[in-house]
């Protein structure tokens, strides 16, 4: 186990020294996706507005008693889209990078960081949209917002670990690309992204309390909505982050040399 950890750390260290490679490739990836469009990367902002706008339009009349609903959905969508994207794209990561893996000696973690960087850039555009929505919804900046920064940071720290775990799942279990894709689509409805939990029972209770995504959403959302630090959600999210990193390091250390035979 220690040998696996050391091997993983070695791969990660090499990848971090090659930060110019994954930064450049991630920027190219984003640029390529929008190169011929008029709006360019601003399309990511438009997509975000479209989704949030739709949910607000459909549900705001139903939940008009909650004046913070727009902010609730806007922040929920921001975090959910980010998590959904990293997980859905991770499962096919090593397959997409097969030519690099079989033709270069770049550490595997370079590909993990390339995807991490891509997702963070995309989330940056969505975040700009989210802040704009918050201001439009009448939310002025409050010091409580700063409590969401540790939450955002924790999610970013967890991102490479989540990508690593799902990338290994994808390379050993190719069907997982479709299974995970479907689960994430369904998962949105079982996660308090656009519905709020007010102590009701039934399936919503379990979907709220036993869903790891709930806590990852709340560490960003609660400080802005309630101006309080979500200590419980932060503690659970920290545990999720730590466990994911442990699994990621073990997988990377144990199987990184075998990936080349599987892609």
């Amino acid at each position: 186990m220690i040998a696996a950890m050391n091997s993983a750390v070695e791969d990660i260290s090499k990848a971090m020294r090659l930060h110019r490679v994954w930064t450049a490739l991630a920027h190219e990836d984003i640029g390529d996706q929008h190169r011929r469009t008029t709006l360019g990367p601003l399309w990511m902002l438009v997509n975000y507005f479209a989704f949030v706008g739709t949910f607000v339009f459909v549900f705001v009349t139903k939940d008009a008693s909650n004046p913070g609903y727009i902010a609730y959905v806007a922040i929920g969508m921001l975090v959910w889209f980010y998590l959904n994207e990293i997980i859905a794209m991770s499962v096919s990561l090593f397959q997409r990078e097969a030519s690099f893996i079989q033709g270069t000696t770049l550490p595997l973690f370079v590909y993990v960081m390339r995807l991490t960087m891509q997702c963070i850039i995309r989330a940056g555009y969505s975040m700009a949209g989210c802040v704009l929505i918050l201001f439009l919804a009448g939310y002025g900046f409050a010091m409580g917002w700063l409590f969401s920064l540790p939450g955002l940071l924790l999610i970013i720290v967890a991102t490479p670990a989540l990508i690593t775990v799902f990338a290994f799942v994808g390379v050993f279990f190719p069907d997982s690309e479709f299974i995970v894709g479907n689960l994430m689509r369904v998962g949105m409805f079982f996660t308090p992204v656009f519905w709020a939990y007010n102590g009701q029972g039934g399936i919503q209770k379990y979907a709220y309390h036993w869903n790891p995504f709930t806590y990852l959403l709340e560490i960003v959302r609660e400080p802005i909505i309630k101006s309080s630090f979500p200590a419980h959600a932060f503690a659970v999210s920290s545990c999720i982050c730590l466990c994911t990193w442990m699994i990621a390091l073990l997988l990377l250390g144990e199987f990184r040399r075998r990936v080349v035979f599987l892609t």
Binding site: L18, G31, G103, T104
Partner: peptide, 18 residues
């Protein structure tokens, strides 16, 4: 390996170099 169709030749040299 590593050449990107949308990037210019000059940019591809940079990427390949990295």
């Amino acid at each position: 390996i590593g050449f990107r169709p949308e990037a210019t030749g000059r940019r591809n040299i940079v990427l390949r170099g990295l």
